[in-house]
Design a binder for these strands. Structure first.
Length: 782
DNA sequence: GGCCGGGGCATTTTT
DNA sequence: TGCCCCGGCC
């Protein structure tokens, strides 16, 4: 252990060694936070704590897994596996299953993922014939989720004047009823959503002090990672468990709090001393990850936030180069610019593709980079998007699994009662739903006993329902005797899914077959692994629990090959890359248009950019585009205010950057057949082209974003042109033009007449393109 | 019940 | 622009 402590700097060591009372470790970006946590756990084990007396909570499976691995290396796998280490959700799911009966649930309750819960909310809204333009399922879902994270039950919600009035003001007075109905329906279905894990844990501890005492005694030392991201429900659970002994250490960085829209409350960390009097604070301020320039640039940005714990993040690494800011004319050009830059940096400096990450604010931005990288044959991987278990065919099969474990599961039943088709259509399903609501029972109760609940259907339908319930019952019987894999196999064969999926040979079915196979492999692997570990629970429910909590980030086992990483800034938290591109630094995108109403939200956006910049080890490059396709419309995008927040001493700004006037200047002297952005007078290209001011050229061709010399005119003419040198207005071969989408380029060919007049242009970043003059939106620069 | 086309709509999202 | 949802049609 002594040796390990040598690997720590003084403040890290202090934080590891202090365990007499509550402590807060403020860990700046790249300051060795995980190292402190792992060493601290190792140290606690050495000082006499048994592994099962230590609870270590993280937010992601990935973080939990990484920490477990690192601890294993110090204290051995055997000891490490006995620690209570996992995500909030996985640890408390385990506890909830154990004590489910205390809160009125069966221990085999279903887990509703967010799609399930959204569906149920949608159903409820429809059943009540409410306007789903006003009661948008996603919005209602968010409101309910926030309520749960603040520990507000439907009863408390309806009783809260504040909440009810807020809903009335937004013309949605019935939210409290939807919430109550949603709550009851989940209960009847024996289902919990993710927020329920935390809410019901709180209810369990509140109503059953013996359970709370039990765990409070088991967890003699509690560690929590990323504390700035905890919401009230999580904060309270931790406090309930820790308040008797106060052996708690929380780690976090208020500057990296970026999940407030999920209920994370930064004051949990800012006011920690209120809940834990005498709490000692340790600050880890040395950044080991990034160059000094990157740290300085990031600091100069985050300084602009008012609400934060004072700290001075510094780096002893190389100075490094300034944070480059690239200006692209359009989103399209931004893509090519960055693809070019990656190719160039790789060629010149010998980086591999995996040394690069492109971080963006919204997933929608990824498409354009995908295209650009693909055209340049640069391999990439995208994080985010649909996970394996969210695919339709997988969800269908999993729904059978869920029904087998818990037949009351409403969302699962709705999915499979007519899949594969067995003649139970929407009408019947609607009747079942109404009947269940009237009698306050689950759909399954109605389906399996239609006579008792007087379900108004004919005898044919009754037979069909009987066949369905018999099928499910047979699975449930097998569930008692079979392990997960054998059971899954039976379900797939007997449900008709196998025949359904494997009867066709078109490409779409082929991919469904592969996915089905993949799922079965997953079950198989799960069983083998568990059995090897000597774990007896290889029941289907354990597999279901595991996959409900799994996310896409977890399955990056596949090909760790050399690829550029693309993800949202949110998803990049906790990761690091040699070279980072943060793209789309424009007003209304980053900061997002939805987050501009209050200074608080702007501060969160600023923290988000801080997180993005501090992912970079060697080079950080920021970019913005002047116009961007948004909702199908080309839209003018002024550069982000955050670029001006940063100290320009640490930036290398494009010469065009002056943060405001730029847009104005560009819009002069351009020719456009369409109504671009409403700021340009519409003109036909065939109108006489007016002289172009030369000022614009200077501002475009200089600056650091210039990598590829323009093709020489002579060369272009001899190789590319058809021979006849044409001229349209002042547009001729050799002219430099600026295109709305493709950026700047040189005309290498002109052909056709009138309507069909075309030009070939070699664009700096985008390469060669043929454009119809009739449609092309461009300006002549020279 | 499945397929097509028009209209409405576009954040971030560890579990 | 592209996705999703709904209604109309076969």
């Amino acid at each position: 252990m002594e040796e390990f402590l040598k690997n720590l700097n003084p403040s890290q060591r202090e934080a590891v060694l202090y365990n007499e009372g509550p402590s807060l470790v403020i860990a700046g970006a790249g300051s060795g936070k995980t190292r402190v946590l792992t060493y601290k756990i190792a140290y606690l084990l050495q000082t006499g704590y048994a592994p099962y007396n230590i609870l270590a909570l993280t937010f992601t499976n990935k973080a939990a897994r990484e920490m477990k691995e690192r601890i294993s290396r110090i204290v051995g796998e055997d000891t490490a596996s006995r620690l209570w280490m996992g995500t909030f959700h996985s640890v408390f799911l385990r506890i909830l299953r154990t004590y489910a009966d205390r809160i009125g649930f069966d221990s085999k309750f279903t887990i509703y993922d967010s799609a399930d819960s959204k569906n149920l909310i949608k159903t409820i809204i429809k059943e009540r014939s409410l306007d789903d333009k006003l009661y948008k399922p996603a919005t209602v879902q968010a409101i309910i989720s926030n309520a749960k994270n603040a520990l507000i039950t439907p009863g408390a919600y309806a009783a809260s004047k504040e909440l009810v009035e807020a809903d009335e003001r937004s013309k949605k007075p019935l939210i409290k009823d939807i919430y109550a109905e949603y709550w009851n329906r989940c209960a009847r279905a024996g289902a919990m959503d993710f927020d329920d894990f935390l809410l019901y844990t709180n209810i369990l501890f509140r109503d059953h002090p013996d359970v709370r005492d039990h765990y409070s005694k088991i967890f003699r030392y509690i560690l929590v990672d990323e504390y700035q991201d905890t919401n009230f429900a999580q904060h309270l659970i931790v406090h309930q468990l820790a308040k008797d002994h106060n052996h708690i250490c929380v780690v976090g960085d208020d500057a990296q709090s970026i999940y407030s829209f999920r209920g994370a409350n930064i004051s949990n960390i800012l006011n920690l001393r209120t809940d834990y009097p005498g709490c000692r604070i340790f600050k880890l301020e040395q950044n080991y990850r990034s160059t000094r320039m990157i740290v300085a640039a990031a600091n100069s940005l985050i300084e602009k936030n008012k609400e934060q714990i004072p700290k001075h993040i510094f780096s002893d690494n190389d100075e490094g180069s300034k944070v480059a800011v690239l200006s692209a004319y359009s989103d399209f050009e931004e893509g090519y610019m960055i693809a070019n830059r990656i190719a160039e940096m790789r060629a010149v400096s010998g980086f591999s593709y995996s040394d690069f990450a492109i971080l963006y604010r919204t997933n929608a931005q990824s498409r354009i980079f995908e295209e650009a990288l693909r055209k340049k044959s640069i391999p990439y991987k995208i994080y985010g998007g649909l996970s394996f278990y969210q695919r339709k065919e997988i969800k269908d099969i999993v729904a059978y699994f869920r029904m087998t474990v818990n037949p009351h599961d409403e969302e699962a039943l709705k999915r499979i009662i007519n899949y594969p088709p067995r003649g139970i259509g929407d009408t019947t399903l609607r009747k079942i739903g109404e009947c269940a609501t009237t009698h306050k029972v689950s759909l399954w109760q109605v389906v399996s006993d239609p006579l008792t609940y007087a379900l108004p259907v004919n005898n044919g339908t009754l037979d069909k329902l009987r066949n369905f319930t018999d099928l499910i019952d047979s699975f449930r019987e097998s569930a008692e005797k079979k392990n997960a894999f054998d059971l899954a196999e039976q379900i797939i064969k007997q449900s008709g899914i196998f025949t359904e999926v494997f009867s066709n040979r078109n490409p779409e079915d082929l991919s469904r077959q592969e996915n089905l196979q993949e799922l079965m492999n997953g079950v198989q692997e799960f069983c083998t692994l568990r059995e090897e570990e000597g774990n007896e629970s290889v029941a289907l429910i354990d597999f279901l629990s595991e996959i409900s909590l799994a996310t896409d980030q977890d399955n990056d086992k596949e090909e760790n090959s050399d690829k550029v990483t693309m993800m949202t800034v949110h998803a990049s938290k906790g990761l690091e890359f040699t070279n980072v591109f943060v793209v789309g630094l424009e007003e209304d995108l980053f900061p997002s248009a939805m987050c501009k109403s209050s200074e608080r939200e702007i501060e969160e956006e600023r923290r988000l950019l801080y997180v993005a910049i501090t992912r970079a080890e060697k080079n950080c490059i920021l970019s913005y585009a002047g116009t961007r396709y948004r909702n199908g419309q080309p839209t003018a995008m002024p550069p982000s205010r955050f670029l001006k927040d940063m100290d320009s001493r640490y930036l290398s700004l494009p010469s065009t950057f002056d943060g405001g006037e730029r847009q104005e200047r560009l819009s002069q002297n351009r020719f456009s057949s369409g109504n671009m952005l409403g700021r340009v007078r519409s003109r036909q290209w065939s109108e006489e082209l007016s002289p172009v001011n030369s000022g614009a050229k200077q501002s475009f061709s200089s600056g650091s974003e210039h990598y590829r010399p323009l093709t020489r005119i002579e060369q272009a003419v001899s190789k590319e042109s058809t021979g006849t040198l044409k001229q349209f207005g002042n547009l001729q071969v050799g002219s430099i033009i600026r295109h709305d989408r493709f950026g700047q380029g040189q005309v290498i060919e002109l052909s056709g007449e009138g309507e069909n007049a075309k030009m070939g242009v070699d664009f700096e970043n985008v390469g060669k393109k043929q454009l119809l003059l009739k449609f092309a939106k461009f300006t002549v620069v020279e």
